Computed example of a mutant assay.
Amino acid sequence: MKTLVKVHKKLHLPTKLCPVCDRPFSWRKKWEKDWDNIKYCSHRCMTNRKQV
């Protein structure tokens, strides 16, 4: 009899730090094609970024 082991694949996702809130955020499926260009963790951080 085989035992089934749950594998948590989401533990090994790439992460980045948001420059606005300094919190880490993980890769999401909807960002798959554009992950290299993602800088902010949320729309809120994107709109509240510091204007230089």
Score class of each variant (00 low, 15 high):
Met1Trp: 07
Lys2Ser: 14
Thr3Trp: 06
Leu4Lys: 12
Leu4Ile: 05
Leu4Thr: 01
Leu4Asn: 06
Val5Asp: 13
Val5Arg: 10
Lys6Ala: 11
Lys6Pro: 03
Val7Lys: 14
Val7Asp: 09
Val7Ile: 15
Val7Met: 12
His8Gln: 11
His8Ile: 11
His8Ala: 12
His8Arg: 13
Lys9Ile: 09
Lys9Cys: 05
Lys9Val: 10
Lys9His: 13
Leu11Cys: 09
His12Asp: 13
His12Ala: 12
Leu13Ile: 10
Thr15Leu: 07
Lys16Leu: 05
Lys16Gln: 05
Leu17Arg: 09
Leu17Gly: 02
Cys18Ser: 07
Cys18Glu: 04
Val20Asn: 11
Val20His: 03
Cys21Asp: 10
Asp22Met: 12
Asp22Val: 00
Arg23Tyr: 06
Arg23Val: 03
Arg23Phe: 01
Arg23Gly: 03
Pro24Ala: 10
Phe25Ala: 02
Ser26Ala: 14
Ser26Ile: 10
Trp27Arg: 08
Arg28Val: 15
Arg28Met: 08
Lys29Ala: 09
Lys29His: 11
Lys29Ile: 13
Lys29Asn: 10
Lys30Ile: 15
Trp31Glu: 10
Trp31Thr: 14
Trp31Phe: 06
Glu32Lys: 15
Glu32Leu: 12
Lys33Glu: 08
Lys33Asn: 11
Asp36Gln: 14
Asp36Arg: 14
Asp36Met: 03
Asn37Met: 06
Ile38Thr: 03
Lys39Arg: 15
Lys39Trp: 00
Lys39Cys: 08
Tyr40Ile: 03
Cys41Tyr: 03
Cys41Arg: 04
Ser42Pro: 05
Ser42Ile: 03
Ser42Asn: 07
Ser42Ala: 07
Ser42His: 06
His43Cys: 01
His43Leu: 06
His43Val: 02
Arg44Gln: 08
Arg44Gly: 02
Cys45His: 02
Cys45Tyr: 02
Met46Trp: 06
Asn48Thr: 03
Arg49Val: 10
Lys50Asp: 12
Gln51Phe: 08
Gln51Asp: 11
Val52Pro: 15
Val52Leu: 13
